[in-house]
């Protein structure tokens, strides 16, 4: 408001002064913007898993009692894990499949650990929409391919837990695991 009398600012402002002033205003507004964005960081990261949840993300399972042809369920990250002791016949069936015909091409070898080829360890979570497939429990339906069958939307998995039929896009996920002894596996 240049018409205000009694101001001590020259009415004609030289270009240098204007640029310096604009710079300060822009810097101040930018600093406010940076501050605002910084505050978003804790607000967003608080929704990520908390330390106690992450601490439960590994589990040790003793699978000594699982006989060939049987399976057991364990829990990893609050989700079921299937630990299955494959029979030689089941292994043979899985290996006989032409991998190139599969929706998610993987061999049984790629899905097990060397020296423990009969132990198929996968998440018990259907890759379609997250239901628990049948086939790990005593007397449950194992589907057309002798592996797992998801009753929600009819996905059928074979003896290597690979998707063979139905809407699921991927094979049952193999979680990270290692054998700490011949009867104990550490998942996660």
């Amino acid at each position: 408001m240049a018409h205000d009398a009694g101001t001590d600012t020259p009415t004609v402002i030289d270009g240098e002064g204007v640029r310096r002033r604009d710079f300060i205003n822009i810097a101040a507004v930018s600093a406010a913007g940076v501050g605002g964005l910084t505050v978003l960081y804790p607000l967003i990261s608080q929704m990520a898993p908390s330390a106690d949840v992450l601490a439960e993300s590994s589990t040790q399972v003793d699978f000594a009692q699982v006989q060939p042809g049987q399976a057991m369920k364990a829990v990893f990250r609050k989700q079921p894990v299937f630990i299955r002791n494959l029979t030689p016949k089941e292994i043979q069936e899985a290996e006989a499949v032409d991998v190139s015909t599969l929706r998610d091409p993987q061999t049984l070898k790629e899905r097990t650990k060397p020296g423990h080829e009969n132990w198929l360890i996968t998440m018990g979570v259907c890759t379609h929409l997250g239901c628990i497939p049948l086939g790990a429990g005593e007397g449950e339906v194992r589907g057309e391919f002798g592996g797992y069958f998801c009753p929600c939307h009819g996905s059928q998995y074979d003896t290597a837990a690979r998707i063979r039929k139905g809407p699921a896009p991927k094979n049952l996920e193999v979680p990270p695991y290692e054998f700490t002894s011949d009867t104990v596996v550490k998942i996660g």
Partner: peptide, 25 residues
């Protein structure tokens, strides 16, 4: 670090305020 940043931002804000009001005695 946060308070350090706030001091920096506040000094800038104050300078900007002085600029805006420079013509108002």
């Amino acid at each position: 670090w946060w308070v350090g940043f706030l001091i920096y931002a506040t000094v800038l804000g104050y300078m900007s305020y002085r600029n805006v009001w420079a013509e108002k005695k």
